[in-house]
Design a binder for these strands. Structure first.
Lengths: 214, 214
DNA sequence: TGTATTTTGTTAAAACACTCACAAACCTTC
DNA sequence: GAAGGTTTGTGAGTGTTTTAACAAAATACA
């Protein structure tokens, strides 16, 4: 009787590192690397070889002892594990500077995050076309989410409107939210929220350079 | 003989939470709250009251027992601790969609991150004016960094040009880099780098909703 | 076939982070 | 000014994550 219940808990930190691994592996693949071992992979990822092996092992046994990891297969396995080997239909709420930049950012579609609706509550913006997408009124959220099968919402509103945007998304049935607004959102437990905040990162920089500065 | 060496090591996780505390405290301040205790503050930050107290205690004794924390003073103390109570002269490299959105984003200046130079290597972009700022050639990096006293670089180039941008910044004397390009940068040990990657966050969402989904 | 070499997957140890629990300190009221 | 009620700051205990170490498994080559 060995590990019948293999489904160990995967640390949050591991998940975050997976994106780095994939990024680095894709670069290696473009450079023609077919096999890589944990040591050079770790160096390329600014990590520790033990950690790389342990992280990967959470998802399966992808390596060959004495050889290393097949880059192509590893990318396939990891993208499948993270469920990013398929399309995710996405909506954007808040067509400001940042919202427009994201709508124009082709990498979202390339990576399978297909933005199929853009919402705003400003009557001057409604009807505007951006990348073949019409900006529509936030009130039509439920209708569009159902019609388009939207599963992810991206919030790029000002902070004072972000909670309303989140509530609308949740009421329309969206369970994943990526928010760029600098405010904490209140959502039900079964909804996942991730925050992107440029200033969080800038504060780490200023703190580090000010204290540990040399 | 008590704690003569008060300079305890501050956990990385604590630093990251500081930005959240400041964000929430500023919202409370706008709402007119003058005093807050760790319990409601923790709830607003999606955290544990003990953790809030411990995090704050790393930087000093800001609270009053039996009372709580003075919101205004706490903001002042924390912004000072993170060194964000002053101006940081900043340069942006890579005037694409995202670069433009950031140059147009007034919050950077509001928060003390004053973007005083915009670089690009595309001759068609050089000379263009954005927010009263002229886009200049990346070759003039060193000159501008010295002249303007630039301490932080923001990289918004495509990934294939991000390493060159970083190298230029470092050679010009910049020690803090915020990179939006999806690639790991190689820099000397005394240079601090932070990465903002939207896809990292999206992958967390897709993984969570696919596995723990209910 | 057997030995040397490489590199994984995993166990054990160390480092780190979080939570609990409570004394110390403050406020209020009698 | 003493008692009762709050809330902080912190030490001790617990849990989690990272690092180190090594047996197991593969290759290469004599």
């Amino acid at each position: 009787m060995v590990n019948l219940l293999k489904s160990k808990h995967i640390p949050r930190a591991t998940i975050q590192r997976m994106a780095v691994y994939i990024q680095v592996l894709e670069k290696l693949q473009r450079e023609g690397v077919e096999i890589i071992s944990s040591d050079p992979l770790a160096i390329a990822c600014d990590a520790n070889a033990s950690q790389v092996r342990k992280d990967l092992a959470y998802f399966g046994e992808f390596g060959v002892r004495g050889v290393g990891y097949n880059v192509h297969n590893l990318i396939r396995s990891l993208t499948h594990a993270l469920a990013i080997d398929r399309e995710w239909r996405t909506a954007l709420v808040g067509v400001g500077n940042l919202g427009r930049a994201i709508l124009n950012h082709h990498e979202f579609k390339q990576r399978g995050f297909n933005i199929v609706a853009a919402f705003d509550c400003d009557p001057f913006k409604i009807g505007e076309m951006i990348q073949n997408l019409e900006v529509i009124c936030t009130k039509r959220m439920k209708e569009k989410v159902d019609e388009q099968g939207i599963e992810i919402g991206i919030i790029t509103t000002p902070p004072e409107r972000s909670q309303r945007a989140a509530t609308h998304l949740v009421e329309a049935g969206v369970r994943c939210i990526l928010s760029f607004a600098p405010s904490r959102l209140k959502v039900p437990d079964n909804v996942y929220v991730e925050y992107v905040d440029f200033f969080h990162h800038l504060y780490s920089l200023t703190f580090n350079v000010s204290t540990k500065g040399n």
